[in-house]
Design a protein around this nucleic acid. Structure first.
Lengths: 237, 237
DNA sequence: TGGCTACTACGTACGCTGTACTTAGTGAAG
DNA sequence: CTTCACTAAGTACAGCGTACGTAGTAGCCA
């Protein structure tokens, strides 16, 4: 009988193999990869202990030998895709490097649309998160500021990118469980909005929507936002 | 037998009362208020259809007469607390007004710690969200920019505040279900981090953490971030 | 006024979830 | 060779969202 003590625990501090007993059938990476596969293909809500176990080909409860709580499975997932960050030799121009960081993070989140929802400061110290943070700090070496300010810059850029991508993807992810498409959902919401604006109660909103008749260039909006964050820490003269 | 068609629907377009049949026992506001009470007191995960119904004092399935899906209950909640936004006569100085908007949004989220998790662009057109957006645009009347730019400013400020408060509250909210406290959780994570940094593999991270020995002033960090966003749209010379 | 019918209320039931607990079997250490 | 920490996995339970069916109510029209 294994009494699981009610003691907080960092999954990364837990040894993968203790030496005694049969060799574990899977590694932590196997499990994380299986969960990521499911989340990518079927959405985050499809990531249940039963599904992940089935994907691995083992019994549901066997997973708990590797991962004490489902929460920890999420942490494994976030760290696993964090490993996809490609790190480079800092160019010497921190602005260029920060732009690259932002774009890469955005691409990562578009590859794994469930990632923004799972991002948590509690996962900030996982192995790959540390690797990534250290790399960002290395890119910021040319910036003459305190480390505290550099961390604020990283946090703000990350927060902005996360918020942006979340807004980009949220409806698509939410709508997965629903019996209609994202386009249908949006059409109904836009139609409703049109009705509200037509009442004249929101003159500036109405003006804003007639101003931008054409489709907005999301790419340009993103690039502008990145540039603004960077400028906020070293304004052009 | 009521066949519920699989047609997307905006809850706000659905009439509260159709005239026929018995008068509904509750209003949409009653339901939203009950859900908000539960979320405030016991966390978002305690907001189940059964709990909300019990809080109202009706049968579980009766809720579905008011709210076609649980998703829509969330939308009601977000709109309800959005009504707590206190709107004022624009001061004429948009920077001052934007600071006030940011602080107020932060306070709102601290009153309702589940709000950041529920924020979705899909809820952006609810009655109180429209009211709030129009007010922000009114505050930005003195700013000589296109509406598109103003909306980008609002989105960036909102996104930043949301990300900031989420980081502030996330662990506290996550830890609710767990059998230990936020402080215990943090202590374990910090201890683990210390061990990792001591390996020397992350020299800049280590330097950053020795630099800021004292406790960081979260208030000041928040104010700085707000100022940076504002400056990003109208840099001081 | 009486009936029709749209509506409200709500109990039952199903398939799903996370996970506590239990038992059986394995293999390295003493 | 025994011991025992470990892995693997089944069973069971409480809780979830919600499809469906039924009973009763009240406004409308004949």
């Amino acid at each position: 009988m294994a009494v699981r003590g009610a003691v907080p625990e960092v999954i990364w501090a837990r040894p993968q193999r203790t030496g005694r007993g049969p060799r574990p059938a899977y590694t932590r990476d196997d499990i994380a990869a299986a969960a990521v596969r499911i989340a990518d293909a079927q959405g985050l809500d499809a990531v249940s202990m039963r599904h992940v176990a089935a994907e691995l080909g083992c019994g549901t409860m066997s997973l708990y030998n590797y991962v004490p709580r489902k929460e920890d499975l999420y942490e494994l997932m976030v760290d696993a895709v964090g490993g996809e960050h490609e790190l480079w030799e800092p160019s010497g121009d921190w602005r260029t490097d920060m732009r690259r960081v932002a774009r890469q993070t955005r691409e990562l989140m578009r590859r794994h649309p469930w990632l923004p929802r799972l991002m948590s400061p509690a996962y900030g110290f996982s192995p790959n998160a540390l690797r990534y943070l250290e790399h960002c700090l290395a890119c910021l070496d040319p910036l003459q500021e305190r480390y505290g300010t550099k961390l604020e810059l990283i946090a703000m850029l990350n927060g902005m990118v996360t918020a942006y991508v979340r807004n980009e993807l949220d409806t698509a992810e939410r709508v997965r469980a629903l019996p209609w498409s994202e386009d249908e959902e949006n059409a109904v919401r836009i139609a409703y909005l049109g009705g509200r604006l037509a009442t004249g109660a929101y003159p500036r909103m109405a003006a804003a929507f007639t101003e931008d008749a054409g489709p907005i260039d999301l790419e340009a909006v993103f690039e502008r936002a990145v540039e603004r964050v960077i400028d906020a820490f070293a304004p052009r003269r």
